[in-house]
Design a binder for these strands. Structure first.
Lengths: 83, 83
DNA sequence: TTGACATATAGATATATATCTATACATTGA
DNA sequence: TCAATGTATAGATATATATCTATATGTCAA
């Protein structure tokens, strides 16, 4: 879990999902200005680890945080660890 | 910072230092049953990142956590993220 | 000043992880 | 059924990170 958070792109994805709630893949890779394939790979990696869940709605796949621990750690970082 | 925590050996080192306070290199590598060189490398890496500080006392070098954020994240994990 | 002990580092190699390009797959609407 | 759109994956390559072995460095006491 901490390994997931420890990667800059994955952290950005997690923060985005934590802040704005579930997002589809296009929204994620456009917001973060990364390649579609890169986004997709990190997303499925995190889904495989149980960090995220996905839900398909038609042609879109929406990802969201499924591991409460992640949310808590992120919130903790926001609360106590701002430079 | 999160990248440091995201490595199993480094996490163990941090937890050890958080729990038992400053330790010298020998204590660390013996407690964790790892090679001296491995311990030394991770320790100096974390010192370079500002996560740890070291203090030499004669022949021994004692390491401790210098970044409060690390302590806070670890405590947060202990408080909220136990399986 | 030499030997014993503690720690650090160099250099080689191994392993893991990330990224890129291209293409495949899935879904929907015309 | 086909084209358009969104998403996933394969395979090759690049890059980063970790580990190992050996050796260097630092400190002290005899």
């Amino acid at each position: 879990m901490l390994k997931c958070i420890g990667h800059p792109i994955r952290l950005q994805i997690i923060e985005l999902l934590d802040r704005d709630g579930e997002q589809n893949v296009t929204a994620i890779y456009e917001t973060l200005a990364i390649e579609q394939a890169v986004a997709s790979q990190h997303l499925s990696l995190m889904r495989d680890k149980g960090i995220l869940t996905s839900r398909r709605e038609g042609v879109n796949v929406y990802y969201s945080i499924s591991d409460v621990r992640v949310t808590r750690v992120i919130e903790c970082i926001h609360d106590h660890c701002q430079t």
